[in-house]
Design a protein around this nucleic acid. Structure first.
Lengths: 341, 341
DNA sequence: TGGAGTGACCGTAACGGTTCAGAACCAATT
DNA sequence: AATTGGTTCTGAACCGTTACGGTCACTCCA
């Protein structure tokens, strides 16, 4: 029976024909994939854990790029890709337990997320992305800290010393406003924590008291958040010469806000982003490009690679500083006197 | 055992504690989802069949909107969403057979696609989107024919009689060029067939010989294709006053080409699209908006709705004609004389 | 003609859960 | 003391497949 469908060489054409004919007559719909999976111990699919409203994954360009890369890797391998329903509201971890998959990819979830814990309990290989090294799982990501450090040095070399920072959600609780240094260190999103650490290091080395640098956080990740956050920083600290955003989306929002205030970029205010999404490129944003699609593809490859899985592997992809047209040396008061505002 | 995990009320707390403790000591990782699925006959996931390189789904705004809507419906229901690897190259239908899912959503595949046939053989509920009514499955879509008919009438009312058409892939074979009326009728993509039929009807009624109207097809769906197709039409028929595209993406490409040729839109050339994507709105395109996100959500709801599944249901969503700034009455020769070109 | 070798076919035992019938137990009622 | 009722617990059947070993018939060669 099974052979008739899956191993035609194991039986005579005649018998095969008879079996298939009878099966059809009896209304047999072909082998049941679930039973097959149980027997062969292969589900033929990998799960993607996102802990974010799924629409986020489809609207955020960086997440979308990752998703595409992962999907490509799965397609190459002929494997299904299962999106696990795990919104942040829903504490319900059952979906993770119920998923019939051969492995998980975990994309940028807070390190205290219960879904992540549930995934790690499952006895299947896992690849985490944009997370610190944890447990016995593979990892793929970039060196967020160094990348941001480099960007900061770029600004420092231009002469920026009074800066403000706009960052994404640092933990699962909503905190739309200023961020203490403690909260920065305790951030549960590795990516954000690392980027802030890179900034802190660079500016501290340049003699700037980091604890005095205004850092504001936004829970939602869209341009409206970027606008509001930028407004908050500029209201309290109109004298800053640069606004460093930890994502391009936030930076694009900040650009809008600057424009609304009549601030010229970069003459009056330098704005930088992070990610290197297409919209940022169009806007000429100074930012750090990271290979989001490659990240997804690498995660998929790592998970689907049947090779030796002796010890956890860690893949670091490289980033590139994009010097756009939104960063320039701050004009000094003296210059303002000479050339006018 | 099972009860300890899933039905705490069926046994004493003491026993439950003991069972769980022992399980942990023995390194038992919790119930196996696949075995559970086999027994309960529920996989907790729905499959999405796209027959298109998966990256298409993540790059094309309309497909992306559909995907988002579907994902939202799945998230609401706590169901997983599995992307089935079925690129057009790969004739391999095994992935459809192997997918452990409770149902399928089929999005805009040619009606002779082997993957579609494989899905229909599976004894699980199926919802097709942007397809004609087939077999015993639910359907969700729009009335492409009427929507396009309405758009055509809008142009006809403006006075357009000499028009050209740019359409998407009509079948699985690549045919980048002119399309015979036969091929139009035989198109395997229902959506494209219906839209062309709507145009043919409207223009025939207006006294235009449809068989003389240039219709060019492009296999790939991106702005570059739109540009090339528009060029092809304009090269052969410089006298057309309107270029009707069956998607916004193609229309945006056509706009680029018009600009390159120094043709003003809409003064020299009217261009229309179809879909109502955001980029089109920004460009002020005259187009037909269809509720892509709602389409995805409706498909998901239909599939996940446990209600009576006696006979196939068919959901038609409504569309809206968007009168943008890319369509206007054609200028007559007389007008040209008066006002200059 | 006998024995080994070959290929086709068939029967059965897992895979790991869920479910359900019934056993075992205890308490309350007749 | 025996019956009844109710709860907690145990064991076995079943879901549908694949892997594997065994049977059987047949051929080939000595």
């Amino acid at each position: 029976m099974s052979n008739a469908y899956n191993r035609p060489d194991q039986l005579s054409p005649e018998l095969r024909r008879r079996v298939l004919e009878t099966a059809r007559r009896l209304g047999y719909p072909g082998p049941d994939p679930v039973a097959r999976s149980l027997r062969t111990r292969k589900a033929g699919a990998v799960g993607l854990l996102l802990t974010e409203n799924l629409s986020y994954a489809f609207r955020d360009p960086a997440a979308l790029g990752f998703l595409e890369g992962l999907a490509l890797a799965c397609e190459d391998a002929g494997t299904g890709l299962m999106l696990i329903p795990a919104s942040p509201e829903r504490e319900d971890v059952a979906a993770v337990h119920r998923a019939g998959v051969d492995g998980f990819v975990v994309y940028s979830v807070p390190d205290d997320d219960p879904h992540l814990a549930a995934v790690l309990e499952r006895p299947v290989p896992t690849v985490v992305c944009d997370q610190p090294d944890i447990g016995n799982v593979d990892r793929v990501g970039i060196d967020d800290r160094s990348a941001m450090y480099e960007l900061a040095q770029h600004l420092i070399a231009m002469g920026h010393r009074r800066v403000g920072v706009v960052c994404m959600r640092l933990a699962r609780d909503r905190n739309d406003g200023y961020v203490s240094v403690d909260r920065q260190h305790a951030a549960h999103f590795h990516v954000q924590r690392a980027r802030l650490a890179g900034l802190a290091m660079a500016f501290s080395e340049a003699g700037v008291d980091w604890s005095k640098v205004p850092v504001v956080e936004r829970f939602d990740h869209n341009t409206a958040s970027g606008e509001a956050a930028a407004a908050q920083v500029l209201d309290r600290d109109p004298s800053i010469t640069a606004l460093i955003c930890t994502s391009d989306i936030l930076a694009l929002g900040a650009m809008n806000e600057a424009k609304r205030r009549g601030l010229r970029v970069p003459e009056d205010l330098t704005i930088t982003g992070f990610d290197g999404i297409q919209e940022a490129e169009r806007a000429g944003l100074t930012t750090v490009r990271q290979p989001v699609l490659e990240k997804g593809r690498a995660a998929g490859k790592l998970l689907l690679d049947v090779g030796e899985r002796t010890r956890p592997r860690s893949v670091n992809l490289s980033t590139e500083l994009i010097t756009g047209t939104t960063a320039a040396a701050p004009r000094t008061i003296a210059e303002e006197r000479w050339f006018g505002p």
